[in-house]
Each structure stands twice: as C-alpha cells, then as structure tokens.
Design a protein around this nucleic acid. Structure first.
Lengths: 352, 352
DNA sequence: GTGAAAGCGCTAACAG
DNA sequence: CTGTTAGCGCTTTCAC
C-alpha cells in the first residue's frame, strides 16, 4: 500500500517539493535550490529553473516553514517563542507597555546560544478558544495573556495550556495572574468623586466588559451605594471610542438624566464625556467632576487635566515579565495571583 | 566519527529529548510522552515519569517548536505565516488598525485546508537589519513592513527578502510600496495654515523621522518658503509624547520665538502643543492656529477640535492587504508604488 | 510497561 | 548539470 519513502504523490495533501519535482521530472534537491534561489551555484539549466518555477506557481506551492526551520536549525541554539495575546477590541497602551518590558527582558537575556522571538497576536474578544493553535504545544514556549472577556476566562479556567502562561489583569483559577488589587480602582474613584462632594455620581463604561473593568464598575457601584444609600447612574456605551462615550452621555442628558460626577473607565470614554459635558454648557469640574483611568499618559493633557485612578500598567508589567521568565526556566512557582496597587492622581477635573 | 543515527550525545548542542532519554536511561518515546502529558495512556511507571521530569528541568530542556510542528503537521493543510513588522517607537494604534484589516482578510480567506497565522513583530527603529530571522526564508510567508527609519530603508533597498513584502508609508526601490501621495500632507497642512492667514508658521516634529514624516516636514517647509519667502520655525522635540511636544514649544516661546500657526506631525505632539499654547495664555485658533494628522480619531475631540490632514491609514491598509495576498498567490505584480491621497478635515483649530 | 523505527518537509553534502 | 542520501527534533504507531 505505502509508497517508497520519498516518492509519495500525496494525492490529496498539500503540495510539497516532491510533487513539484515529480511534476517537472527533476529531483527534490533541484526544486529546493530553485526555491531558495541557490540554483546559480548549482548551475541548473535556465530552462529547468523556469519549469520548476512555473510548476511551483501552477501547483500553488506553499513552503512548510516548520520543515525549513527544522532543517535550518543551528544546533547549539535554543529558541524561545514568546507572544503577547490580546483581543482586537482592547486598548493597546497596556499591550505596548507589556511588549516594551518583555523586549527589554529578552534583549537582556539573549545570549549566543539562546534566542527569543517575541510577537503580539490578537484574538476576537470572547472567542479566545477559537484562536488556532492555542491548545497546541507547538507554537509558544510562553505567553502573556491580557484583555480577556468573561467568556474567555471561563474557557481558560477549564483549560490547561501546554506552555507557560501569565494572565494580566484577571484572576483565573489554576493560572499565574498579575492584577490590580481587587475593588481598589472602583472604590477609590468613587471616593474621589464623593470627596469632591458629588451627590449624583455616574459611571461610563463600554458594554463589553473585561473582568478588570467589571470589577471596577462593580466596586464603584458598591461604594456609592454604601456612602449615599443609592446606586450611581449606569451609562453603558456601545464601545470605547470617544464618539460612543459622547453619545451615551448625550442620550443620558437628553433623557433628563442628571449627574455631577462621572467615572469614565477608559481614556477614550473620558474624552467623549468631556465633550458631551462641555458642549451641553456644563463646566468641569464645577458642574460635573470627572475621574478617569491613568493607564494613558494623555490624561494630564485634558482641559482641565483629568484626575485618575489606576495606571498600574508599568507596575503590573514589572511583575508579569519576570514571572514569565521564571516559568520558562521551570522554577517551581505555584499558580496564584500577584496584586498591584495603582496610584491615585488628583488633578483639576475633581477639584472643587 | 559519526554516531549511530539516533544516539547522538550532541555534546555541545542544545538539549533534546535524546539527551534526556540517555540521561534517564529510557527511550526518547518515553520522554516524549511525558513532556506531552501522554504518559497516562502509555502507563509509564510514576517513578520513571518523575525521573524524566526532573531530568528535563535539570538539563534545561527547551522544546524545539519546529520539530513539534513538523511532526504535528496535518497533511492537507497549508499554513501561511504573516506578520506586521513595525518599530517599537511607532504608535501602536495605527498598527492595530492594520492588523485588524489583515485579520479580516485572513478570516475571509481561511478555508478548511488553508490556515493563516498573523502577528505583530517589532524591531528597534533604524535597526531593522538586526532583527533575527529577517533574511531567513523560514519565518514568514509574507509581511507588511511599516514605520521604518531612513537607515532601515537604506538597508532594504539593498536587500532582497525571500518572501512577500509590502512596505507601508515608504517608497523603496524594488519593493512593493503603498504610501501617501508624496508632499501632499506637508503641502496641504502648510496651505491650511496660510489660508488661516498665518504669517509665522512653525512645524513640530520628533527628532527621529520616518520617511513619511520627513517627507511631510520637507514639503511643509518648501511650501511655506514658496509662499512667504522664508522658512517656518522648526521645532524638533525629543520624542512623540505630549510632554515632549509641550516642552519643545515652551522652550521656543521662552526663547522669544513667535508663531501664529503650528503643524504638529502626530497627535501626541498636538496634545502637547495645545497645552503649551494655552498655558502660555495664547488662544487657539485666535493667536495660534493648529493643524495635525488625522490618523487618530481623537483629533475631533480636542478643545477646540483639531483640523487635520492625512489620516490615510485606512486607505493605505485597504490597498496593502489585497496586494499582500496577490503576492502570496504569486500573481505577477511588478514592484512599484500605490499612492493614496488623504482627506483634509477643517475644524475649529484653524478657523479664523 | 517500554523500545524501535518510521517519517513529517526540507536542504546540504556528496557523488556522479 | 543533476540525483541520492542523510538527518534536523519530534511523536506515533507497532512490536515485544
């Protein structure tokens, strides 16, 4: 039944150099040399080269990178493939900070015989499980995973990924996690508004919540309830764009909604909130105080400058990256969580 | 001299499962099963499992992903490895938009027997040539390359990468390029300021210039010179952060510099410029008109809203992605350039 | 319970 | 000018 080792037609498989070789009537080595542009040193007949090229094109040849790499592999060099996995829908500053920190570590750890490849890969929020190769042991040596939605977290809680994983911003059982001190951001941002003597606080957030945001929203609500005896206004926008935040707030105002303090859970939403507040003739902070998230350096440059809670990106990354390297080294390290407490920066937007 | 095929000690090479096997005194197959957590079905003795695990750790075993992938390869599935290569110093949101567009195309093109892996990889600006594996034919099937510095461009002009390459925002001989219509952004932004009757225009840019930015700076200068008979003030900031733009402008003002119109070449610099202008007691646009770049949705939400030129990122990506796929398919397509003309959006920051 | 052996796709070395 | 061969590191039968 089985063909000789290297003469397989692979009738329904993918095109390999063997099919091309057979098709043209030359050896696989000849094909290889042409595809690698080494046919000159091999002094192949121009006509043969042409035929091989044509066949590769006609058959739709796609090189198998694993095969090439295995072959090209320099003994005495081990390679770590690392990735940062984030959702398409997420804001990128955290990812940028993570990448820079990871690259710095990699540059420091690289030696003659140890290389690292670092990349950013994205998944559709809530559909992490559909990401190809996630469960395979043949893609990554380690990843930093961030901006997951609850659906992703649920999937992760039941899954065991066959490589080193550090989860950023989220607590997931049996995984290594680095996250904000729970409830801290929601509670402190509520307190900032209450200390500015707000009596009608509101929170502006995107409809799709990462767990970190969900935690912030929940703690904000609880704190307001405790202190004022009633719930804050909940303003859910369609997304995190300034325009979406703006229209959520406009709709609220148009419907007769009142508020004198807003917690905007991303910088984009804060930008939109500023615009909606100011274009409705209200002043910040006199009529409406605003507090936001400090993960973005832009907050200081709002008019007026935005008070922020959080902004623990750097601190989280500073924990996550060394943790990943410890896991790569196989150091015994029980799954668990590292908590980071972010700073609170009071600026004009809550000064009254 | 040479050892039997599979018994090599590889004295100074990297640790493989063969070294582990030899070390423990079992077969490579046993080691493999343990490392893949398949030892249960194999009913390995717990003690053996333990010893194998310990040896892997002690020897610092790092799995070779190419080997695993080659082995795991599902025949009848071809895989394309695509990447977006950008510099660390570049703004991530632009890259994110490119990735989303690429992913959309990939989602559409994926079939049962054709998979795509997409990632973002970064290089240090100006040191593209040092990126590991860039010249190897065993990493990517195709890339979109963006945010290169002149040093990178020079390197590229002399290099032939052994896979499909689309260069974004830059014209490089012998490569497939998608870029803004040359000079357009610099010229139009100058015109926008001149039409606002500015007589002392200035340009604010980062010290490190991508070619696209260099082009913008140059064309701005030429246009001002043509129309006013003298050069614009050139304000070079250390980087693209708001704080850096702010201090560049503060220094300029402090030194007695005067200007009534500014072209800020990124949104971060525009944010800094706004702050420096306003905190110096000047008004926008009455005292100083400002025009910026529209690649960022935030411009509309400045106070006052920022007039922008450019913002052709979406259009460029819309050209670049299909081009990449054509190259992957091997369609004959001579290297050359596609030019995209960006829109001009006039807002309050130049209305006077 | 464990080992031997085949072979994933590719390329470099060697032999004509 | 071209073909044969070995083997990169790994996993999966199959045989004992």
């Amino acid at each position: 039944m089985s063909e000789p080792v290297h003469g397989k037609p692979a009738k329904q498989g993918v095109v390999t150099i063997y099919e091309i070789a057979e098709h043209v009537g030359v050896s696989p080595a000849a094909v290889s040399s042409v595809l690698a542009n080494r046919h000159v040193e091999r002094r192949l007949a121009p006509r043969t080269v042409e035929k091989i090229r044509a066949a590769a094109l006609a058959l739709g040849y796609v090189p198998n990178m694993a095969g090439r790499r295995l072959r090209a592999h320099k003994a005495a060099t081990r390679q770590f493939d690392l990735a940062i996995l984030t959702s398409f829908e997420a804001p990128l500053p955290l990812v940028g900070a993570t990448l820079r920190a990871l690259q710095r570590a990699v540059d420091a750890e690289s030696t003659e015989d140890t290389r690292y490849a670092v990349s950013i890969e994205m998944f559709h929020a809530g559909r992490l499980r559909e990401k190809p190769g996630l469960l395979d042991a043949n893609r990554y040596h380690g990843i930093i995973l961030t901006n997951t939605l609850p659906a992703d977290d649920q999937f992760l809680a039941g899954a065991t990924l066959p490589y080193a994983v550090v989860v950023l911003g989220r607590r997931i059982p049996r995984h290594h996690c680095v996250l904000e001190t729970p409830d801290f951001v929601g509670r402190r941002s509520a307190e900032v508004l209450l200390e500015a003597r707000c009596t009608q606080p509101a929170i502006l957030y995107g409809r799709m919540l990462t767990q970190a945001t969900e935690d912030r929203v929940g703690a904000f609500g609880r704190t307001v309830r405790e202190r004022l005896g009633r719930d804050p206004a909940m303003l859910a926008s369609e997304g995190l764009l300034p325009s979406q935040g703006e229209s959520a707030l406009e709709t609220f105002f148009a419907g007769g909604g009142r508020c004198d303090g807003i917690f905007a859970v991303t910088d984009g939403l804060a930008v939109g909130a500023y615009r909606a507040i100011q274009s409705s003739g209200r002043r910040i902070p006199e009529d409406v105080a605003v507090v936001g998230i400090g993960d973005y350096e832009i907050a200081e440059f709002f008019t007026p400058p935005l008070s922020t809670v959080a902004g623990a990106n750097d601190a989280m990354v500073a924990e996550a990256v060394p943790l990943l390297f410890r896991l790569l080294r196989g150091e015994k390290d029980a799954p668990g969580e590292v908590r980071v407490t972010p700073p609170v920066l009071l600026r004009e937007s809550t000064r009254r």
